[in-house]
Structure formats: structure tokens, C-alpha cells
């Protein structure tokens, strides 16, 4: 929480320089949370979804402050969603290739990923399916990224992408069906 003031300030500023500073902080925080996952501190009480990690990161970094415009909060989740996806995918790849270095974070994240796998969502497969979806419909893929990896609501997603909530909702419904079909292979 020592960063809270600074982060609040950075989020409010919202310029390039501020964001440049902000990113590594968010990235590290996401790592830390994943590490804690490994130590099973959170498993008992928390729903283990990428979304939860991202929200956790937000609370830890920013806290429950009221002076951040909600648009900026949405942006935070937007950033975190993309980071989260990248973190999970990178490490899933590393895991798959059985590249285990001495880096404890990697191990921790591998474990976190295997947990996601038990929830019937294989992160690499989802990532690839999302890439395929992006080829057909970039916006739908983006919506899934924000909703699934970032936990953005329909309305926040709409704000970030500058489209209407009704459109987000329609696209989300369809993207879910499309991805489900792609991943389940039984159609």
C-alpha cells in the first residue's frame, strides 16, 4: 500500500510519462499476487479467476479511493487485463517448453496456471482461440480480453473501447459462443 498515493496520482495524471512509471508497478504487483497463489494463501477464500487477480492488484495498489474518475479506473483494468493475459500466456509457454530456470516467479505462475486449467480453461488454448477470433473480429477478441482477463463490466468495456454497451453485450454473447465452440471441438 506504500505506493497508493503515487499510483493514485499517476492514474489521475494519465499522461505518457505517468503511465510509463505505472506499468512496471502493476506488472510486479500482478506477479506478487500470483506468487501468493502458489503459497496457497488465497485459495481457501478466493475465486481464482484472472479477474480476481486483477481486482486484487487494483485494491492493493490503489486502495478504495474515491477521487479517481471511474473512466481512469476502467483504464487501469484495461491495462491489467492485457498484462494479465500476457503474463499467463508467457508462462504457460515457458511451462509447456519445460523451461524451468531458477526464477521462482515462473514456478509460482506455472502453478497458478495449472489451477486455471482445472477450471476447464486452458490458458494457451484460450489465447490461441482468441488470436484466431481477432483475425475474424478484432473487437470481439478485445472485448473478451477486457472482460475475462480484466474483469471489466460491460459498461467499462464500452467506455474503454468507445462503443455502446449494447454493442459490447451483443459481441460478448457471440464471442463466448464462438470461443466455446472453438475450444470444445464438439461442433
Amino acid at each position: 500500500m506504500e505506493n497508493a498515493g503515487e499510483i493514485t496520482e499517476l492514474l489521475q495524471k494519465g499522461d505518457a510519462e505517468a503511465l510509463d512509471k505505472l506499468l512496471p508497478i502493476v506488472y510486479q504487483e500482478l506477479h506478487k499476487i500470483a506468487e501468493a497463489l502458489f503459497r496457497k494463501e488465497y485459495r481457501a477464500n478466493h475465486t481464482l479467476q484472472p479477474t480476481a487477480l486483477v481486482h486484487e492488484a487494483y485494491l492493493r495498489l490503489v486502495g478504495d479511493v474515491d477521487n479517481i474518475p471511474w473512466q481512469n479506473r476502467a483504464q487501469f483494468f484495461c491495462i491489467a487485463a492485457k498484462l494479465m493475459r500476457q503474463i499467463l500466456v508467457n508462462h504457460a509457454i515457458a511451462h509447456k517448453a519445460e523451461k524451468r530456470g531458477g526464477d521462482q516467479t515462473i514456478v509460482a505462475l506455472d502453478d497458478a496456471i495449472s489451477f486455471f486449467q482445472t477450471q476447464d480453461i486452458e490458458i494457451l488454448a484460450l489465447h490461441e482461440a482468441l488470436e484466431n477470433l481477432a483475425e475474424i473480429d478484432k473487437r470481439q477478441a478485445e472485448i473478451v480480453e477486457l472482460r475475462f482477463f480484466g474483469g471489466l463490466t460491460i459498461e467499462e468495456t464500452a467506455e474503454v473501447l468507445n462503443i455502446s454497451p449494447a454493442t459490447v453485450k451483443r459481441d460478448w454473447e457471440m464471442a463466448k459462443a464462438w470461443l466455446y465452440r472453438e475450444l470444445s471441438n464438439d461442433f
Binding site: 503511465l19 510509463d20 506499468l23 512496471p24 506488472y27 473512466q71 491495462i79 467506455e159 468507445n162
Partner: peptide, 23 residues
């Protein structure tokens, strides 16, 4: 929507740059 669009774009860009730097 100049402002909001511009700011959103900036966020996304910086995200990628930061990420690239880290990696």
C-alpha cells in the same frame, strides 16, 4: 471524443511499451 479517445490510446500504447521493456 478527442480527449477520451486520445487518452485511451495512450494507455494502451504505454502498456505495450512498458511490457516490452520488462520483457
Amino acid at each position: 471524443n478527442y480527449l477520451s479517445v486520445g487518452v485511451a490510446a495512450l494507455f494502451s500504447i504505454t502498456l505495450l511499451i512498458g511490457l516490452t521493456a520488462i520483457i
